[in-house]
Design a binder for these strands. Structure first.
Lengths: 210, 210
DNA sequence: CCATTGAGTGAACGTGCGTACACTCAAATA
DNA sequence: TATTTGAGTGTACGCACGTTCACTCAATGG
């Protein structure tokens, strides 16, 4: 037992420092954008010396990719949790709007990171995020394909509407990210906007052809 | 005459250098993103010494704002031209998709700049772009409000659907920007996607309530 | 024609950066 | 218990950066 505790201690300490670095980078990203921050800034913020950074990541780019992974893992986890909520079945649109705003609010930093670096980051980070979002579109397409009005659609059309949804999810997330804290009125406005946009799109489902 | 040519010469030379700086910044932005490039890089690319930069802009931020202005002026000009085209009246959606892709292709660099710095740039540049986009939403809302199915809608709803359109325009522009050159198949795919998305939204117009 | 103006020059500065290298010293291992 | 391992340290380096300052010299205008 003492042995396993010791074994854990070294690894655990390393893991702890790794998380400090990730947290520091995420934190600094919120004000300046990840692409703008330096290795030394991250190290300083994490409370380590610059050289120690290399024990965990080969470069800032690798740290960025780790943040992409972390962000999407967080997102997937939250969506999985939300799907267990019985309210989702009652009114999928209101629930989606609610979940969107709540989820983004809870892990603003991760969403802000994704939203910014999706277009502003390094080539590698940008590609990684685009890949994850493409996965999302495909996953959502599977869900949409089972909806009553959509089951007869061509797969291209389903992909198209899935992209439309994910895009608007990203845009709405951007809005929540930019939202100043403690403004429930703005929050409600964004939520209502998201709800209406989704409803408008869904209405189109019924009469869609080709 | 000699005098006016001379008068023009000094001003004209300054104007020429200013444009060299703007072009250099726009060019460098395409590979690295404006927020990532340095004053010295811009000066080098423009063929001037770093100190000469200050004769034209107080800071990189001011240069960024000038680029925002230039980009949106280009965009507005192109939209105004497109509206003169009689085809627009026949089929507004197909025309819009066509114009979108053509316009973005023609001034890719400006769109790439706007798309990236909209979220990744400095506070000042970001706000300027957001402001211009908000103006766009309002302008489009005026146009939309005159459409048959929409004339009875509340102004909030019109703004909402206008935002939906502008968002998708931005997203589609991002796709065209990321598109490698000389791939007409991809171009057609994006255009077709944009068309379908717009049609889906428009179909929703008819049965929208509240 | 001669004094003024001002766009562009070139050297110099202090700063923060990424990375190298040799190091410490506690935990892990045999 | 004695040895090895490896996370974190501290110094030092060369480099690019933004900005300063005194400058040149052709276009400008009285």
């Amino acid at each position: 037992m003492t042995e396993s505790a010791q074994v854990a201690s070294r690894q655990a300490q390393k893991e702890r420092t790794r998380h400090l670095i990730l947290a520091a980078a995420l934190d600094l990203s919120q004000t300046q954008g990840f692409a703008q921050i330096s290795l030394r800034q991250v190290a300083r913020h994490a409370g380590i010396v610059p050289t120690a950074f290399y024990r965990h990541f080969d470069s800032m780019d690798e740290l960025g990719l780790a943040l992409v992974e972390q962000s999407f893992s967080t997102l997937r986890h939250m969506i999985r949790e939300a799907q267990r909520d019985p309210k989702v079945l009652d009114n999928i649109i209101d629930a989606a709007a609610q979940v969107l705003v709540e989820t983004v609010k809870q892990s603003k930093a991760h969403f802000a990171f994704v939203a910014r670096e999706r277009v502003g980051g390094s080539e590698a980070v940008r590609r990684a995020i685009q890949h994850e979002l493409d996965l999302f579109v495909s996953e959502l397409a599977v869900v949409l394909a089972r909806l009553p009005n959509i089951e007869t659609w061509s797969s291209e059309d389903v992909q198209m509407v899935s992209r439309l949804f994910v895009r608007n999810m990203v845009s709405n997330a951007e809005e929540v990210v930019d939202m100043p804290d403690g403004r429930p009125d703005l929050e409600e406005k964004i939520k209502e906007g998201a709800r209406r946009q989704m409803r408008l799109i869904v209405i189109g489902f019924r009469d869609w052809r080709s």
